[in-house]
Each structure stands twice: as structure tokens, then as C-alpha cells.
Design a protein around this nucleic acid. Structure first.
Length: 269
DNA sequence: ATGGCGTACACCGTACGA
């Protein structure tokens, strides 16, 4: 089984699609699962409105990089966050999509966590699609250095790319579309080629496991989803990786985010 | 079928997401 192992060090990612709307759901999820680290995307909240006090009261340090209306990322951690980096270094980009931090686990392991909200890309051929590929190329140049310098590297978030056809509910219907196009998959492969391994695929998983479902047309009921929320783990961390699972429960509630959390569990030593 | 649904901003509809 790939279930979280009690006592393991849990690192999670969740695109909450508005932290204002999902605030109570997030706090409830933290109470229920008690993850060590959570990377949030699409917080859609400016830094001066970030609910830092409530998060601290729940037992988490937090760092955040937000803006009005769109985008926005945050890191929550039971352990102190150090060496924060906002945005891709040496890449001029207005949206707040990247936040990195170093976290020391109680057992002594040291994780460098890079939280991403990759651009949507709209449709192949569009300007937004070109931006997405340009953005991923800049990200990859940075991660190449990080992967060489940081053996505890974990890159996670909303990648807006489904790595393989088995990560797509209907590959024929999606053929050539944004999130599954050969260009996007090649860009993702350039990242995984940096010895950054898809944690989810290190374990046996149920078929048709997804992390996002459209709000429309009863997509969740029909399990018509995509797996686009990923946790990439540096090869040197794989011996510590104990499991990786998608928690679909938060997608079942009223006013759910269209994405659901993904959790990786590590041996804490 | 550029709509379907949800969120944000702030108009009473438009932009954007995936």
C-alpha cells in the first residue's frame, strides 16, 4: 500500500483555488492529517491579507508570495522555513508562482522544497502556451543548479502537465490539448531528467488516479480528471520515500477546490 | 456548442482557469 506511514515526514501540495474560500477547509485538513509541510498554490490573496495568525495558531510556520486576484503560492511547515526564494532567479515574471525554502526535519534530514504554480498555457499555439514553455525552460535552468547543489530537493506543486496518458481520463479526447501536448511533456521530462522522480509513480497506484477535475459537467462524479499536481523527489531521497498518495476527500465537499491534495511521506531520519 | 462551473473584481458583465 502507498498509504502514509504514521511517524513519517509528510510533504503535501494543494492548489486551493482561493485561500479565502478554502481557509476553513485547509485548517480542517491540517488538523485531520497533520502534515509536516504543505505547499499551496492559487492562494489569490495579497501578502497583507494572508491568514498567517490562524495558520500559526494551527501550529505552522508560513511563508507566502501572493498577489491580487490570481496566482499566489505559500509554504506551511511545522518546522522553521529558511533561505526563502521567491520567483525564478534571473527571470523577469510578474505572477507570483514560485516559493522555495529549506526545512530541517526533526530526525536531521534536510529538505529543499520548491513550490510551483506552473502557467496554465491555455491552448497550444497561443501566447500563453509560448509563455508556459518559456517559463518551464527558465525553471529548468534554475533547477539544474538546485538539483546539483541540493540532494534533499523536492519540487512540487501544480505543474499543469499530465506526465503520461495514464494520467488522463480520456487520452483520445485530450490528444494534442494543453496539459498533455508533446511540447509540455518534453518540458516536464527535461525537469525529471535532472534526477527528479515522480514520487507518485514510485509506488503501486490505482488506475485512473487524478488530482484535478473540471467543475463542469459532473467531471468529479465521472472521475473525468487529470493528474497534474506532482511531487518530484531527487533520486538521492528515494531511499527515504515511503509513500505517495492523492487524498480525494477534500474534492467531495461543498465548495471544493477543483484540485485535491497530494502527499508524500518520507522516513524522518 | 467558447458553453458547461467556480472565483475575483466590482460591473450588474468580463477575465481566467484547466
Amino acid at each position: 500500500m502507498s498509504a502514509a506511514v504514521p511517524g513519517g515526514f509528510q510533504i503535501a501540495t494543494w492548489n486551493v483555488n482561493s485561500l479565502r474560500v478554502r481557509h476553513e477547509q485547509l485548517l480542517e485538513w491540517l488538523r485531520a492529517h497533520s502534515p509536516d509541510v504543505v505547499a499551496l498554490q492559487e492562494t489569490k490573496i495579497q501578502d497583507h491579507d494572508f491568514p498567517a495568525d490562524a495558520i500559526r495558531a494551527a501550529g505552522y510556520h508560513c511563508a507566502f508570495s501572493g498577489q491580487k486576484t490570481y496566482n499566489g503560492v505559500a509554504l506551511l511547515s511545522k518546522h522553521p522555513l529558511a533561505d526563502l526564494v521567491r520567483d525564478i532567479p534571473d527571470f523577469d515574471d510578474a505572477p507570483r508562482r514560485v516559493l522555495a525554502a529549506t526545512i530541517a526535519a526533526p530526525g536531521g534530514a534536510r529538505f529543499r522544497v520548491v513550490n510551483l504554480y506552473v502557467p496554465n498555457g491555455q491552448a497550444p499555439g497561443s501566447e500563453k502556451f509560448a509563455y508556459k514553455l518559456h517559463w518551464l525552460a527558465a525553471l529548468t535552468r534554475w533547477l539544474k543548479n538546485e538539483a546539483a547543489a541540493q540532494p534533499g530537493l523536492v519540487v512540487l506543486g501544480d505543474f499543469n502537465v499530465a506526465p503520461e496518458d495514464r494520467d488522463v481520463h480520456d487520452p483520445a479526447a485530450w490528444l494534442g490539448s494543453v496539459h498533455v501536448s508533446p511540447e509540455e511533456r518534453a518540458a516536464l521530462r527535461a525537469i525529471t531528467d535532472l534526477e527528479l522522480c515522480d514520487a507518485f509513480r514510485q509506488f503501486e497506484q490505482a488506475e485512473k488516479s487524478f488530482s484535478w477535475w473540471d467543475y463542469r459537467q459532473g467531471a468529479f462524479r465521472r472521475n473525468a480528471g487529470l493528474r497534474i499536481d506532482l511531487i518530484l523527489v531527487h533520486r538521492q531521497l528515494l531511499p527515504k520515500l515511503q509513500g505517495c498518495r492523492i487524498d480525494v476527500e477534500p474534492r467531495r465537499v461543498e465548495r471544493a477546490s477543483d484540485h485535491t491534495p497530494v502527499i508524500a511521506t518520507f522516513r524522518p531520519d
